[in-house]
Computed example of a mutant assay.
Amino acid sequence: MINIQLLNKDFESRVRLGIMSILMVRDWVEFKELKELLDITDGNLASHAGALEKNQYLQVRKEFVGKKPRTTYAVTQLGRKSFQDHLAALEKLLGQP
């Protein structure tokens, strides 16, 4: 029996899936680089990253480099575990006959 309930609704968006996929293999990634890698707008990235941060899947570091603001993101332990569980559920779903 296929249990679709095991999939994490927080990762259903392609943007959130992309953010998490990048952060799973990189320690800290700057806002600008994430935006370019995902080919999305500032507002789109900010919205999805904010939702992931709200659910404690991301940690955000804001600082100034000279006079320019710099925002970087990293996945939290909860985010890593939740995303791994989501991927495992996807693999199980795809493995069903």
Rank of each mutant, 00 (worst) to 15 (best):
M1K: 08
I2N: 05
Q5C: 00
Q5R: 05
L7C: 09
L7S: 09
N8T: 02
K9C: 02
F11A: 00
S13G: 08
L17N: 10
L17H: 11
G18W: 08
G18Y: 06
S21L: 08
L23Y: 04
L23F: 05
L23M: 05
M24H: 06
V25P: 07
R26K: 07
R26S: 06
D27Q: 10
L34D: 10
D39K: 14
N44W: 08
L45C: 06
A46G: 07
S47G: 10
A49W: 11
L52T: 12
L52K: 10
N55G: 07
Q56K: 11
Y57D: 02
K62T: 13
E63G: 11
V65M: 13
G66V: 11
G66R: 10
P69E: 14
T72M: 05
Y73F: 07
A74V: 09
A74E: 14
L78G: 00
R80F: 04
K81Q: 02
S82I: 01
S82H: 04
S82T: 04
S82P: 08
F83K: 13
Q84N: 06
D85F: 01
H86D: 12
L87W: 09
A88F: 11
A88E: 15
L90R: 07
E91R: 09
E91M: 07
L93H: 05
G95C: 03
Q96C: 02
